[in-house]
Design a binder for these strands. Structure first.
Lengths: 350, 350
DNA sequence: TTGAAAGCGCTAACAT
DNA sequence: ATGTTAGCGCTTTCAA
């Protein structure tokens, strides 16, 4: 037989459609007997709600869109993992999109063009500008990750990137490093993850009274292993040898370690290396990688929580809506491992 | 104003709702003038189709579910990446679920319980049994990845795992290795990825006239770095030193390299290492990793193609339906890198 | 080439 | 505690 509908269940249970609906939706005022009868009919027919009908009627789907630059960055995979887990805990399903850091894709995600089904969107933008946010009609509930964008225009979840980079740089300085490369860095002012981290790096240099050399800031096209590897190669070819490399993510750091190895330089003895993100690869690399470890579970938890709030807000009419955007800062710590163990000693994996 | 509907567009363009619908759906017999008027009205109002209505009417959503064990396995992240790309190319959106290798989750994915919206599902099962497939009412179009299951019960896409493992093992034998560990292996008969690969390993040993030692097969709880690292540690503690390790994925291989490094053994001089999957981490590790490289793009392409076929079949009534399940084998190659460069020489990264 | 009417499956509002 | 009615937005007859 074709897939049963509420009508079929109602017929079989000898009640009205509405009563069936009541049972399905756990409406309180249904007698035990009726409830049981309906439950049985449902089981016998193998009935399941048709979400299309429910969606059309209710206007909500229980689906949220997660829009990330690329899934094959371990950091984003970890993030997706956490957000899916958290969403499922809240009865939500996650639609996944990739933008490949393309502004048009990010824009269209923000406006809900690509995923009309979604009740809301969690977006990790790379190319979006403040203007894009300013223009947007505040329709689709949205939470942004990272800090590509000036605060105040949308809900945001991120670590304190300036602080994190300063922590990492201070650590390098504390083990006696003086010429520190920044792979993936950018001289421009924040917002932007690269910019914020480069600023933190600079603050640490200033605080230690070390000179800031623009040539030590190596921009890259992408935060990937090959680009990290190439950037370090370029630096070694061009300038004086650095004694440390601050890589703005772990992938580039692993690429950097590879290049240093190929050039016959020892990590950390000759060159210390630090990354960001704390991906699994850095806990088993040779040497293991010192890294800024963001609380990824917290990012996922806060992002979903915030989005649920906004969705509820949107559903509740414009009653208590238009609360101001929230900026949530999630904790991070520095995981110190072999790649920055002082010049002489060798420490165990952290 | 509230979101415009077809009615609003019709009113503005001075035509009927049906005409608007015709334009939206690229129906041929619409005069140029009418079409233009409707298009303008759509643009002016910022109209977009409401997918809930369309879904209810048509019964299809353009959404497919992708169900994977864990997203933070680089291999699955790569796969998801490819499938999302391929799906979007075909105008489909992808819903993502994680099963954590739980049979209940896999079953419920197969039956479409978790994602009622989906027109079909691409599933990478780990715990599903042949019985689970045999029982299922063939309702939701489904394509399975990997080879957890006996052939003939559902559409399948995978590499030839027996052959791939034989290739890898033959390579190790060809560079003079004799005592080869299998990390993640399983003595049981196929189906099952671990089982198929262990069989291929054994075939290679037999062909070379080498003895098969069950103690060389190290089962693991998960195909992850820590488990690979621990398995090798166990083997080194327990038995004679191996001169090669065949790891059934790259994550375990990277973990294995780490343990060997900690024990003061040189890779590949003392112990050669091979992995499966060809993830990026193995192209920049120290040493770089020899690995079985499946054509992941082909997996994605074939999986989506097959699923589209089944969806079309399901939509076309039971007319030409019930075509027999397809088994599609996707090519692989052995990427030879530093971790198996012969005892003396050192080769460049492949 | 275009329009009118009906209905996909569900639930909110309003009876009873 | 349960039933009746209406309608969410769209597309599919069928008719003009």
């Amino acid at each position: 037989m074709a897939r049963p509908r509420i009508k079929d269940v109602a017929l079989r249970a000898g009640v009205s459609e509405k009563t069936v609906s009541n049972v399905i939706n756990d409406y309180e005022h249904v007698s035990e007997r009726t409830r049981k009868a309906v439950r049985e009919a449902i089981a016998e027919l193998g009935y399941r709600v048709n979400l299309a009908g429910r969606h059309l009627r209710r206007g909500r789907t229980g689906i949220i869109a997660l829009v990330l630059p690329e899934l094959d960055f371990p950091y984003f995979a970890d993030l997706a993992n956490g957000i899916i887990t958290e969403a499922e805990r809240n009865g939500l399903t996650v639609l996944l999109h990739q933008t490949r850091a393309d502004r048009q894709h990010e824009l269209s995600a923000l406006h809900g063009f690509d995923h009309d089904f979604a009740d809301g969107v969690i977006l990790s933008p790379l190319a979006l500008t403040t203007e894009d946010l300013r223009d947007r009609r505040r329709t689709l509930p949205a939470v942004l990750l990272g800090e590509a964008i000036e605060p105040g225009w949308a809900d945001h979840v991120a670590i304190d990137n300036v602080r994190a980079a300063r922590d990492a740089t201070e650590h390098l300085i504390s083990i006696g490093r003086r010429r520190i490369l920044v792979v993936g860095g950018s001289d421009a002012p924040p917002p932007g993850t690269a910019e914020a981290r480069t600023l933190g790096y600079r603050q640490a240099l200033d605080a230690a009274g070390l000179p800031y050399d623009p040539a030590a800031v190596m921009p890259v096209a992408q935060f990937r292993m090959p680009h990290g590897a190439a950037a370090v190669a370029r630096a070694l070819d061009a300038g004086p040898r650095p004694d440390a490399v601050l890589c703005l993510n772990d992938q580039m750091a692993l690429g950097a370690i590879r290049t240093l190895h190929e050039r016959g330089l020892r990590v950390p003895r000759d060159v210390a290396v630090v990354g960001f993100d704390d991906v699994e690869g850095g806990r088993f690399s040779v040497p293991t990688l010192t890294t800024v470890s963001p609380d990824k579970k917290a990012v996922a938890r806060v992002a979903v929580e915030l989005l649920l709030l906004r969705i509820a807000e949107a559903a509740g009419g414009s009653g208590n809506a238009d609360l101001p955007p929230e900026e949530r800062v999630v904790p991070h710590r520095l995981a110190i491992r072999e790649s920055t163990a002082g010049p002489a000693a060798a420490a165990p994996a952290g």
